[in-house]
Design a protein around this nucleic acid. Structure first.
Lengths: 253, 253
DNA sequence: ATCATGAATATCACTATTTGATACTAGTGA
DNA sequence: TCACTAGTATCAAATAGTGATATTCATGAT
C-alpha cells in the first residue's frame, strides 16, 4: 500500500476516489476486473469501494453486465462547482452574447496546474463532441488559451513552464518545440491575445485572450475555435478579435 | 455511527462523499466547522476527510480563510459522465441545431429517481444563471419535462409517482395539487408533449417532449423555456412544437 | 497592548473497521 | 458437460481510522 506519511491522510477515501477517476473519455463502463486493472487495487478493495459508491449513488450499475458507469451525481457536482466559481456567472452572459452574435464556438478556459480546463462551452453545429462538453483538460502549452494565460505571469514562471510543462502531440502539426512555444507566449504578452492553428485538431484555428483582474493576472481565458478552411489567420483577427477582446473585457469590467 | 449492515459497505468512503455533497448552490465555500455542521460528522473526521480530498485534488483551499471549495476535478467528472451516457452525443448536435435556428433556450433533461436533472443546456441571453448550467435537479412532477417523461410509464407507476413523488413550491403559482398534476401527465401521454407555465419561475413557459427509444420508454426529454410575456401558450405551440418534436425524434432516429 | 473567543491543527491510545486471502457461485462458450 | 472467467461472500488478523483532547493560530473587542 502506497504510504504517504501523513497522520491525517485517509487512504480508504483516496482509494475510493481512484475508482471514480478510473472513468474517462475512453473508459465509459467498467467491470470489477477492469477497475482492478485500472486502479491497481486489490480485487476485494475494488469490490467494496465500487459497492459503496453504488449505494451512495455515485455509480450506476448495469444489472445485466454488472458493469459500473458514472451516475447523474457527477453532473450535480459540476453544478455545485459552477456556483462556487464566481467567474462563471460573470462570464456566461458575455459568452452567450458573443455566441449569438457571431454564431461561432466560444469557450471559457481556466488554468489548472499545467493544463487548461474548459469550464464553459457554447458550441455551434460544426463543433465536434469532445470540444462541445465542459471539463476537458488539455496541456496548457499546446493551446492558445493556455499560452495567453501563461503570458500574464512572471518571466521566471514563464521560463519554467515553457521548459517543464507537458506537451502532447495531438496532430501532425502540433507545435512541440519549446523555444517556439516560448516565443508564442512572448508575443501573446505583447499582443494580449494568442492565435494558433492545427494544434489540437487539423484545420482548426484557435484564438484566445485573457480575462484579467485588477492584479493583471489571468483569471481565465476566452477562446474561439474557427474553421481553418473557411478563414485564414488574418481574417480571423480582423473579423473576431475586436469582439473577442470586448467580450473578455466585459467579464470583470 | 450510522450502520447499514452490509459487510461490503465502507463507511469511511461514504463519509468522504458526504463532504463533497456538502457543497451546493448555496454552499459555495465551507470552513471546517461549516462542514462539521453540514455533515454531522466528528470534527476530526471532517478534518481528515477534507485534508485527504484536498491532497487528492478534489477540494481547493483558500490559503487565507482556510475555506474549502470545489475544484476543477468536479468538471472533469462531468466530462467523464458525458462520454459515458450515449444519449448525450446523439442529442447535442440536434439541440445546437434547434438553438441556432430558433435562438431560444433548449435543454436535455433526464429522469433521476423522482427528480429530473438537466444534462445539456443551450441558454440564450435571457436565461438566468441557475437555468444555464447543467446538473440542476428539480422535482419531476413540478416540471413539464418530468411529467412528459413520466407519462411514458405504466399506469401503476404514474399513479404511484403522482401520489408520492416530492413537490416543491417554487413560485406562487407552482402547481401543488396532485390530481391536477396527474391530469397533466395524462394529457402529456395523449399529446406527446407537456406545456406548463410559472412552475419554477414566474412568466416562464416550459414546453417538453420525450426522446423515446424503440421500447416506448422515455430516455430523456427535450425542453424549451420561453418568456410568458413575449408569448402565450398557444403561440408557443404553434411556433415551436413542430420543430421541437422533430428535434426530439431526430435524436434516436 | 492584552485578553477572550473561536477556529484550525496536531497528537495519541484504543479498537472498530478495513483488509486481503480465499472459498464459493453464476454465467459463458467450447 | 466441462473449463474458465468474472462476480460474490466470508472471516481472522491487524492496520488504519476514530474521537477526545491539547495546542496553536487568528481575529476582534476592550
Amino acid at each position: 500500500m502506497e504510504k504517504k506519511y501523513d497522520s491525517l491522510y485517509v487512504s480508504t477515501l483516496a482509494r475510493g476516489l481512484q475508482i471514480l477517476r478510473a472513468f474517462d473519455e475512453s473508459h465509459i463502463s467498467l467491470s470489477l476486473t477492469d477497475l482492478v486493472a485500472r486502479t491497481g487495487l486489490e480485487k476485494s478493495a475494488v469490490q467494496r469501494m465500487a459497492h459503496t459508491l453504488h449505494l451512495e449513488g455515485m455509480l450506476e450499475r448495469d444489472p445485466k453486465t454488472r458493469h459500473f458507469r458514472p451516475s447523474h451525481a457527477w453532473l450535480e457536482l459540476a453544478y455545485a462547482y459552477y456556483w462556487s466559481d464566481p467567474i462563471i456567472a460573470r462570464a456566461l452572459p458575455k459568452l452567450i452574447e458573443f455566441s449569438q452574435a457571431k454564431g461561432e464556438t466560444i469557450n471559457l478556459a481556466q488554468i489548472s496546474g499545467d493544463h487548461i480546463i474548459y469550464s464553459l462551452r457554447l458550441p455551434n453545429q460544426r463543433t465536434h463532441f469532445a470540444a462541445s462538453i465542459v471539463g476537458r483538460r488539455l496541456p496548457a502549452l499546446n493551446t492558445a488559451a493556455g499560452r495567453v494565460m501563461l503570458s500574464t505571469r512572471s518571466d521566471a514562471e514563464i521560463a519554467y513552464a515553457c521548459a517543464n510543462w507537458p506537451l502532447v502531440q495531438a496532430t501532425r502539426k502540433t507545435l512541440m518545440d519549446r523555444d517556439e512555444i516560448a516565443r508564442s507566449v512572448r508575443s501573446a504578452r505583447e499582443d494580449g491575445y494568442c492565435i494558433a492553428r492545427d494544434q489540437m485538431l487539423l484545420n482548426e484555428i484557435s484564438l484566445a485572450t485573457t480575462v484579467t483582474g485588477t492584479d493583471g493576472q489571468a483569471h481565465a481565458a476566452v477562446q474561439i475555435s474557427l474553421s481553418g478552411i473557411t478563414f485564414d489567420e488574418k481574417q480571423v483577427l480582423e473579423k473576431f478579435l475586436p469582439t473577442l477582446l470586448d467580450t473578455a473585457a466585459g467579464i470583470l469590467g
